[in-house]
Simulated scan of single mutants.
Amino acid sequence: MPSSKKKKEDVPLVSMAGLIRYYEEENEKIKISPKAFIIASIVLIAVVIALSALVPPP
């Protein structure tokens, strides 16, 4: 088997297109469930609305 053919098989198709893959471990990322994110967003929106109603504009 020629060495050029062997090199082509070892190189991923994505890197041949000029793109780079970054392999990151999933353990390094913060994991939040979608339900917790939606609930936190709704609570934050409610707090902002309540504060805007309670605090008069300057």
Rank of each mutant, 00 (worst) to 15 (best):
P34Y: 03
I49A: 15
Y23Q: 15
S3L: 09
A36S: 05
V14M: 07
S15N: 14
M1W: 12
I38C: 07
V43M: 04
K6D: 03
L19S: 02
V48C: 11
P56T: 01
I20P: 01
P57Y: 04
N27R: 12
E24P: 07
K8T: 06
P34L: 03
S52C: 13
P12C: 04
A40L: 07
A50S: 15
K7E: 10
K29V: 09
I39T: 12
K31P: 00
M1T: 09
P56Y: 04
K35M: 05
I39F: 12
I42R: 06
L44K: 05
V47P: 00
L13C: 02
D10K: 15
M1Y: 11
P2C: 04
I38V: 15
P2H: 04
E24M: 13
K31G: 03
L13P: 01
A50G: 10
A46I: 10
I30T: 10
I45M: 04
V11I: 15
S4V: 08
P57A: 01
P58S: 12
A50I: 11
V48W: 07
P34N: 05
A17R: 02
Y23K: 14
M16K: 14
I20Y: 13
V43R: 00
K29C: 01
Y23E: 14
K6E: 01
V11P: 00
V55M: 11
S33K: 00
Y23F: 14
A36K: 02
K6Q: 07
D10F: 14
K29N: 10
I30H: 06
S41P: 00
E24R: 10
N27E: 15
A46D: 03
P57F: 06
S15L: 08
E28H: 01
G18C: 04
S41C: 03
E28T: 05
